[in-house]
Amino acid sequence: MRRTTRGAALVLPLLGALAAGQASAQQAVSQNLAHDPGAHAPASHEVYFGAVLFDRLEWGVGLDGSPNVARWDGQAWYGTDYDKIWIKTQGEVERGRRAENAEVQLLYSRLIGYYWDFQAGVRYDARPRPDRTYGVIGVQGLAPGLFEVDLQAFVSERGDLSARVELSYDLYITQRLVLQPNVEVNLAAQRVRELGVNSGFSDVEAGLRLRYEFTREVAPYVGVNYTRRFGEAARYARDEGGRAESVEFVSGIRLFF
């Protein structure tokens, strides 16, 4: 309950800012009309649209003694060409444990360039314990070479700074068979003892997934996923019977609606 309230406290100003933005846009339009008596109201309005993408919904079988893992990584957006509400979520559950990582982000997204969105909002990590709330800013888009890029910086409720870099690339082998390499790197500016985070690299994840797009919406895949934890995170992982390094054979489905 307390968490919810805190989350809302962070979300509400965000929505407020969004509403203000829209209000000022409307104001600008009405000013235009005022200055331009000949102008009619536009016949076409903004198109609102949205999508849900679960890039990863998978089960990983640990190789070489690594634990089995269920993992998800998804996002959804809704809005106009320029202004969108963007939700991101990712997490993983190791077999026989409770959720090891589970986070959700609520962002406002604004198109700032041909290929780039600026995003800002909040992130809530339900796992690991203790749960944390972060402020988020970032950019998401398409880098030269057709790399999907997501750069995010976080500041926790305690003032801890961290960052995340995600890169992926869709290599079309045929029109429907797509090989997707991806990398995710998490960095921290300082040690956060209770989360097992050291300053510097906290973890690196790399994957290679081969999907078959029966449709753009439904694409099952297989692949491998490699995770490496550093510093205290690695030590904690080992202390808890885990490993600093793990490799899984993954199979799952990509959903895009």
Binding site: V47, F49, L171, Y172, T174, Q175, R216, F256
Partner: peptide, 14 residues
């Protein structure tokens, strides 16, 4: 809008 290449099944591929 969600994927400008949604309908393109003539992409360049490997």
């Amino acid at each position: 809008k969600r994927d400008a290449g949604y309908y393109n099944y003539n992409k360049r591929t490997a």
